[in-house]
């Protein structure tokens, strides 16, 4: 399994990458800026991709780096979008149930490690010189094509679902003014449970003034699809 200059070298690279993966993974939840956290997670993913390449899973390893760099970039944007200060450089400490979480994390690690150490795994390593890339391609478009295509359709459904969920325009009007079900007869009172005035989703406390909220969110609704429905000028950042 020595890919780069003998087994000793491979081992060394493996331990270095593992240490990097775990250290940067730990930093994700310890640094005080969300952007730093995002990119620490990206470094962790890249290390895991490197380990996969060491294990001759060339495509999986490189594709991990490719996918995760894009995903973490998007994640970083969202982080900053929902943070109080735009650059995300202010310190933050946003944790709850801290002791319990540490306990759960350690328990998870110890439990899994114990299970790993106590199990006798079969020893059928990858044969030398096996063309893993070709294997994967034949598998994806051969025997397991249905599984692969299902994953593809799932991703398509995800895209549709994500757009439907995050779009501001909905079936019952803009999402931030509260939704009301259609009437029982055309133009009639909304059907279903009667709600308090001001919003269609009574029952939750903590936030008053939906009208004000709606106005507040309007100017920064530029994550709408950009197919010109009136707020094109706002799009220009």
């Amino acid at each position: 399994m020595g890919r780069i200059g003998g087994t000793g070298m491979t081992d060394l690279i493996f331990y270095a990458l593992s240490a990097l993966a775990i250290w940067s993974g730990w930093r994700v939840f310890r640094v005080d800026s969300m952007i730093r956290a995002t990119f620490a997670l990206m470094v962790s993913f890249i290390s895991v991709g490197g380990i996969a390449v060491l294990m001759s899973a060339d495509y999986i390893g490189v594709a991990t780096v490719f996918m995760m760099a894009v995903e973490m970039m998007v994640m970083g944007l969202f982080m900053v979008m929902f943070m109080m200060n735009p650059a995300g450089l202010n310190p933050m400490q946003m944790v709850h149930q801290y002791k319990f979480s540490i306990g759960a994390g350690i328990m998870g690690f110890v439990g899994l490690t114990t299970a790993v150490l106590l199990t006798n795994f079969p020893d059928n390593p990858l044969p030398e010189n096996r063309d893993t890339l070709r294997d994967l391609g034949i598998e994806l478009l051969g025997g397991s094509m249905l599984i692969f295509e299902t994953a593809g359709v799932t991703l398509l459904a995800t895209m549709v679902g994500a757009v439907a969920l995050s779009s501001r325009r909905g079936r019952f009007g803009d999402s931030d003014v509260g939704a009301a079900p259609p009437g029982l007869h055309p133009g009639g009172e909304p059907a279903g449970r009667k709600v308090e005035k001001g919003g269609g989703h009574g029952g939750h406390g903590g936030h008053g003034g939906h009208q004000m909220m709606a106005e507040k969110t309007k100017p920064n609704s530029n994550d709408d699809p950009h197919e010109g429905h009136g707020n094109m000028p706002e799009m220009e950042a």
């Binding site: 990119f39 060339d58 495509y59 490189v62 780096v65 995300g88």
Partner: peptide
Amino acid sequence: GLDTSVVFWGACESLIVVLIFLHGWSPN
């Protein structure tokens, strides 16, 4: 010399976007 060098270049492309973002973000 990788079997997957085209994908590897793709990974470089996506890292470039990250690095340019970081370059704009870090000066605060």
